[in-house]
Nucleic acid binder design. Structure first.
Lengths: 343, 343
DNA sequence: ACATAAAATGTAAACGTTTACATTTCTTGT
DNA sequence: ACAAGAAATGTAAACGTTTACATTTTATGT
């Protein structure tokens, strides 16, 4: 027997066009037939075949999301925000996390040219140049997370890393520390670079000298935080405070401090960036910059929907900065009055 | 001008059938034309339209994944495993996390009848009965995570909660503790029930009495762990050891212990379940049961692909148990020799 | 050179919708 | 009762593939 819309049409003794009109609320249909069709559809448990539908309408109601990896609390937050807005607008999300850059490119190509999605949210703190050329062709709406490629017609969303880092650093300065070091993030990472710039800027404006040795490179993971801390503390002239480019590295630093029997913040103060869940459990609680990750996911989805639904495209490069905020714990030297430290 | 496969056909001066054959490696094609077609396709940056393709082949190479919420490290792990296998098999994953049960049902219906996916992985520790009726119609391959609905033809994958809980409890018993309490999980949660059963079983086999007051209900979150611990410690007869149904609750318990100035494990020993990242950072490090979450994701994807590709369906109810393992920290009373406690 | 089979290619009908356009059926005012 | 316009419905052509079947071309053995 016939299927889908045709079946309904046969049962109701109308044409498929009428059925389609009812199902999509397009064009006028007599109330009685509308009701009848709706009822039969209900009874048959009918759901329109989305492939046929997408083929015809040339849109899928699906947004592709490409993330670098799926390991972090960080990505979880972004997905959560994306999903939230997607749900609200009845969109589906196609998720892909690519381990290799090869995968990333392949997926992007598929998304851009394969008709699988209406638009793409790409999170890529570091952009392969082949990817850049792909992005320039710019076939479908695209929102970039955590990077600014300088390509017209593309929206990118970033934390205000510069400002956040600056504020955190200023806070350390206000405590009276003069010897402040930083454990940076990977050179290629856009966030990392901006955070470093913010740090520098704060020092400069306060006329605080920054010796080369006070800049140690990290990799955004626990281990590099550990070794970064160790390295700083083995300097002849030790820093009094450390700003770490992300919280993960702070975890390593705490561990290192413990094994060196250094107290935080009495011997060395610390501030981080991201405001991961764990930071709130540290003892002393971590002073850090809150990165609004869920908000980033939401904003990304909202932007992409705007582009898809309203065919809106930015004229030039268009960057949204999500403002960050300082979360004060005890690690910077502030009196830490919260009782959330389990450990 | 014409598009897609037609365009290629025109340029190469062949029929679309030939192009299709080349692109899909179906049927024989002369080597020279094959090469030619492939080259043109390459030049045009051609990707087959997946909607047309799916419509025709009646498969989408996409697997739907429905999760209850997207907040936890737990879900992240599952997705990671799913994604890993999906990548390897060139499949796409459509992710949906539903906050309301209404959403969950709606999404399931769409996935099952809308032709958007080839199969569904559903994680639902508690199953709405409407969902059960939907599942019985059983239109597409389905893998259930963390629940066993007792419906034939459906695969479900679970941690070996019973065994894990039993082993953990036995470990506490081996330390010589006789007064052992448990903070349980939500009644409706399948994992929670099984873990409780394992706990009971261990006590019973060792002839240890379990007073009613030693069973306090929790909600799998930090707060309930906190209050559960408080409640147990305000009993006239306090437990010497506590088994918590998951690690999140342990976090609350640690906090409570701290505020009561009770030492772990000297005053009260603790064991948890899940082996979350955080547990390794606690001081003392948490003794817990490792739940192989990434493995669960992988297994789920593998099963669903088996069902999709080989049209395999289990005759009856079919449950896979992923074995758990005890991770020994210091919270149970063991000498904790690892140096990973940052805090 | 010819019959026969194998290899290569082409034709056309699906797949299940949407939608522009055409046609029929109602209203409504006269 | 009729014309004119509005409302309701129908027809058929897309959308871009895959694939069964038919046809043409090429290779092989005699």
């Amino acid at each position: 027997m016939s299927k889908g819309i045709v079946k309904i049409a046969e049962i109701c003794g109308v044409s498929i066009a009428t059925v389609s009109r009812v199902l999509n609320n397009s064009g006028p249909v007599k109330e009685s037939t509308r009701a009848r069709i709706l009822q039969i559809a209900q009874e048959l448990n009918y759901k329109p075949n989305s492939n046929a539908r997408s083929l015809s309408r040339r849109r899928t109601d699906t947004i592709g999301v490409i993330l670098p990896e799926l390991v972090d609390e960080f990505f979880m937050g972004v997905i959560q925000g994306i999903n939230e807005v997607a749900n609200r607008h009845q969109r589906y999300i196609m998720l892909s996390s690519s381990h290799s850059q090869r995968d990333e490119l392949e997926t992007m190509l598929e998304f851009m040219n394969g008709g699988r999605v209406d638009g793409v949210i790409l999170m890529a703190p570091a952009l392969h140049h082949t990817m850049k050329t792909i992005l320039k062709s710019n076939t479908r709406p695209l929102v970039l997370l955590n990077c600014r490629p300088g390509i017209p017609g593309i929206v990118s969303i970033n934390f205000d890393n510069f400002q956040g880092a600056k504020v955190a650093t200023e806070h350390l300065i206000q405590h009276g520390y003069q010897k402040i070091a930083m454990i940076t993030g990977p050179e290629i990472n856009n966030d990392a670079r901006e955070r470093f710039r913010g740090f520098q800027s704060a020092l400069k404006e306060n006329n605080i000298n920054l010796p080369e040795s006070f800049i140690v490179p990290g990799e955004f993971n626990i281990e590099s935080g550990y070794y970064g801390f160790m390295r700083l503390m083995s300097l002849p002239e030790k820093p009094r405070a450390i700003f770490a480019a992300n919280d993960m590295m702070v975890l390593g630093a705490y561990e290192a401090a413990k094994s060196l029997k250094l107290r935080i913040p009495e011997d060395v103060a610390i501030a981080g960036f991201d405001d991961i869940f764990l930071g709130r459990l540290l003892n002393p609680r971590l002073t850090t910059v809150h990165a609004p990750i869920v908000e980033m996911g939401r904003a990304a989805m909202q932007q992409i929907l705007k582009m898809v639904d309203e065919k809106w495209r930015p004229e030039e490069e268009y960057t949204i900065h999500l403002s960050t905020g300082l979360v004060i714990g005890g690690s910077c030297g502030c009196k830490n009055n919260n009782g959330n430290n389990f450990v």
